[in-house]
């Protein structure tokens, strides 16, 4: 099989599994497991989109929750304030919701553009602080705008998000993140990560590459925020604090910075792990999950700084495994 055929093959299997999951498997589960799986989908989207900035482009963003909040609030305001005035049919509502999700993504992408601009002048630690600051500013602004609930949170969001939306969006997001690596943009990003000066000397437009990574990543974070809002039916600024961004960072560091499949695996694992640890937590009466997270993070940096899969995709290890057998 040629590479293209192989890719078609892989993605048809992925789509088939997605449909199987959302139509057959999911309805058979009880509500608790359904909830965990939905959160896993949201986390996969957040993680793969953040991989674009932190993994491929080698920048460091600590404000992913801020982008998610922007998208979530935009999308939710549209469906709360605009949708009832249009009087659409159920199918029309579905299309409107899709458009609202994209609109949330676009507004978030514009924010990503604004945040990405300073990244041209700032490196590493400074950029981390600026993105962190952005997230905090967003949170403070949402806290103070009364039209979208302020500190009480935004209520009355309809629960449009079902498993089909999550599966479809997760698949699209993963597809784009996997495929972007082979494009000019994607290769430019990796070049910027390896050596910015050398990349520039080789003719990579580092400015547009970095800003592009921010815009794209924040777009998907925004869409995820919209899905999140319409799944829970409630938004509160305090959800999108520093901790939320940090959870995503833990996921992608654990999976391997720069590995999409690693991020996906780690997102699933880190969604299930805290739930699996819940009985233990009830025995000890202490919420030690975050302590565990932070310890895992430190230990990984000290002992296995590249994360589980390093910069490679899982197919790389599969090929290596097959080769070692023959």
């Amino acid at each position: 099989m040629s590479v293209t055929q192989k890719s078609y093959f892989t993605w048809s299997i992925a789509i088939f599994l997605g449909v199987l999951f959302s139509e057959v498997l999911y309805p058979g589960l009880n509500g608790y497991y359904q909830g965990i799986l939905m959160v896993a989908g949201v986390n996969i989207m957040l993680a793969t989109s953040l991989t674009l900035i932190n993994g491929f482009t080698g920048q460091f963003s600590l404000g992913h929750a801020g982008f998610m909040a922007v998208g979530g609030y935009t999308c939710a305001s549209l469906t709360i304030y605009l949708l009832p005035k249009l009087g659409l049919s159920p199918l029309g509502i579905g299309f409107f919701y899709a458009a609202a999700l994209i609109a949330g993504g676009i507004v978030s992408g514009i924010c990503g553009y604004l945040v990405g601009l300073p990244s041209l002048r700032l490196k590493g630690d400074y950029l981390a602080i600026v993105t962190l600051g952005f997230g905090e500013i967003i949170r403070v602004i949402f806290l103070n705008v009364d039209a979208i609930g302020g500190a009480r949170g935004l209520t009355g969001i309809q629960n449009f998000t079902n498993q089909r939306w999550i599966v479809a969006c997760t698949l699209i997001c993963c597809f784009i993140m996997f495929r972007i690596l082979g494009t000019n943009q994607g290769r430019g990003m990796q070049a910027v990560r390896e050596d910015e000066v050398a990349a520039e000397a080789m003719g990579v437009n580092t400015t547009s590459t970095k800003v592009g990574a921010f815009v794209m990543s924040s777009f998907f974070a925004g869409v995820t925020g919209g899905l999140y809002a319409h799944y829970y039916g409630y938004l509160n600024p305090s959800t999108f604090g520093f901790m939320k961004s940090f959870e995503v960072i833990v996921i992608i560091v654990l999976g391997g910075l720069g590995s999409v499949s690693g991020s996906i695996l780690a997102a699933i694992a880190l969604t299930i792990l805290p739930e699996a640890l819940r009985p233990l937590q009830e025995i000890t009466k202490v919420d030690f999950r975050m302590i565990l997270y932070s310890l895992v993070l430190i230990l990984f940096m000290l002992l296995k700084p590249n994360g589980l899969l390093g910069r490679h995709e899982i197919s790389y290890y599969w090929k290596k495994f097959r080769r070692s057998k023959t």
Partner: peptide
């Protein structure tokens, strides 16, 4: 940087 964030948390 990631380690420092981890220590802080």
């Amino acid at each position: 940087l990631i380690t420092a964030v981890g220590v802080s948390l």
